[in-house]
Design a protein around this nucleic acid. Structure first.
Lengths: 337, 337
DNA sequence: GTAGTTTTCCAAAACGTTTTGGAAACAATT
DNA sequence: AATTGTTTCCAAAACGTTTTGGAAAACTAC
């Protein structure tokens, strides 16, 4: 049924070794034999059994990505773009991508362990890092190759790519202050996430630089979805002195905030300003278009993937720690300039 | 370094066979030996090498999913939800999920071939089917297991799950007619996609039922992204007699249409009605909330995954062809009730 | 004590590759 | 003619499992 090296060998009356070496173009096989082997292999429709090759190589040529989903309806455009970036780079470098999904927690860690123990993958890409991250602790302890998108609370002794969230938020702060906003609310992510602090702290620092303090009562915590942004924006708007600008820590929550504002008959960009973070493609076509901070997510996917493969193959990386400066994208959600 | 059966066997002075059988709880191993094996295995931290097991079983226990991405910035919440549905079901049934990304075309087919020939996966989930679909032709010809989400133009002799797009669109048509709309525009997907016709035809039929004809000039083709919806809505609105209702064939394009309307100072739901299709989570929190047709994408992911695994294992399926009736979700983008 | 049965074990083969370490055949050099 | 070198090949081992087909040892029944 399925053609193996042995079948080819039997057919041409040579050994399996010779067939294998002929196909790999070793120079201890005569040109005539090579020609014959290639021809017969082609004719019989031979393709090597990847599993056998991998067992022999003791490499799975596969990288693992476990997406942290929150709730069953996981629907985040950010991750689909990251996935495309990782996936395309992986195929171009000859690696498979093994994807799993799990909400953070014990089950998630079990999946990592299962993959490591069963040698199913050669390394991981860890995304949405947390301040105390069991995943990176585990992988570090096992000395298992991985590259993270994001950093952890302490001891970042592993390769990562991260964006300078504080810098991005300072840009936002400066932009808002320049436009005259002083009463500012913020929708932050779960504080266990590393990027929560860097972004919120960046915002606070940026405002302080201009003599404005961010009231802690005006920092709400959302779940990074549009629905979460909607709810938290409502909290903010229900206050006695509602903020005139809402800084959401990702675009999805910013969209929710915009809806909350509009549902009250207020106009985004006139009555209340809104900003986001990430610059997902949808941000360009909301009404009004969202002022946000751009992260090259697709490219980042490619970068982490490439770094991981270098790590796996023992090729030195140009730079183990990459921190990208995100850029402010001014659109119209904070009013016309 | 890594513990194998042989290590355990050496340590306790038994054969590899016995250790293997003890771990699998065969009854030709004495209780004492079993106990000992388990204990030592535990102590040495043994985990079987998945690659070796798979080679021996001649099964990869892996299912393949190749996402058709359009352009580098692939950012579709629909697919992340589907992925979560497939992924969670796969781990719960002990399968790995191999994900790749490619834009439709020759390269895409190459990826399928590579996976099939190298026996890297035991089956595929094919998504976003086309009327003439090289992928299903290929898999059918190779008699390789797969389950599709969606149908093809002719000869649907393979297991699939699909939604009744025509039915969904008829609901939309009826809803709009009931609300008094007569001048209707449509933003359709690429007509090569199977669901393009079923949806547009369904709309047309639904309108005809109520004595309204869908003007072909009022059917534009969008690329299923928000940006595409924005552009095509503008085309529609630029007409001499612009439609008073825009029916988009997915939610993302509906969002774009809403922005286009709002950018002209018009009010969605008052001046122009908009409808979508899919009911992605974001649809609930746009302004106004989007009237659309609900597809249980997460569940569908689980279903196709389960069907595929049955197909792979030769277990008969309850039903090889599942066509789901989507339900109309009335919100506010066509005006208050 | 013998024949049969049950319990417990294992060597060897198999899965499909790649690598190792020669060996045979022939040619070139002294 | 003996030595060295080159070309071409391959048997065997290895990767880490599981399965097959016994076989030895220990009981059971008469």
């Amino acid at each position: 049924m399925v053609v193996t090296l042995k079948d080819i060998a039997n057919r041409i009356g040579k050994s399996v070794t010779t067939v294998s070496r002929a196909l790999h173009d070793y120079n201890d096989v005569s040109p005539e034999t090579k020609e014959l082997v290639h021809q017969v292999a082609e004719e019989m429709g031979y393709s090597p059994n990847t599993l056998a090759q991998r067992l022999q190589k003791r490499q799975s040529d596969t990288i693992g990505l476990i997406l942290p989903t929150f709730g069953p309806r996981f629907s985040d455009p950010f991750f689909s773009e990251l996935l495309a970036g990782i996936g395309n780079k992986a195929v171009s470098l000859g690696y498979d991508l093994l994807v799993s999904t799990s909400s953070p927690g014990e089950r998630e860690l079990q999946i990592y362990k299962k993959m490591v123990n069963g040698r199913r993958v050669d390394g991981f890409i860890v995304v949405r890092t947390r301040k105390e991250d069991r995943r990176v602790e585990y992988l570090l302890e096992k000395d298992f190759p991985f590259v993270a998108f994001g950093r952890v609370g302490i001891n970042n002794e592993f390769p990562y790519v991260d964006e300078d969230g504080a810098y991005g938020m300072r840009s936002i702060a400066k932009h808002l202050v320049t436009l005259g906003f002083t009463n500012i609310g913020c929708i932050a992510p779960d504080p266990q996430l590393t990027f929560a602090s860097s972004r919120v702290d960046g915002l606070r620092a940026g405002l302080t630089d201009h003599g404005i303090t961010l009231d802690e009562d005006y920092v709400c915590i959302g779940d990074l979805t549009q629905s979460g942004g909607y709810k938290q924006a409502n909290c903010l708007l229900d206050k006695l002195h509602p903020p005139s600008a809402i800084v959401a820590c990702n675009d999805l929550m910013a969209f929710g905030a915009m809806s909350a504002i509009q549902d009250r008959g207020l106009i985004v960009g006139e009555d209340v300003a809104v900003t986001g973070f990430d610059d997902i493609p949808m941000a360009e076509h909301t009404h009004p278009p969202l002022t946000t901070v751009h992260q090259p997510v697709y490219q980042i996917g490619g970068m982490v993937c490439e770094m991981l493969i270098k790590r796996i193959q023992g090729v030195p990386m140009d730079d183990e720690h990459l921190v990208l400066k995100p850029s402010l994208i001014v659109r119209k959600s904070c009013g016309e300039k």
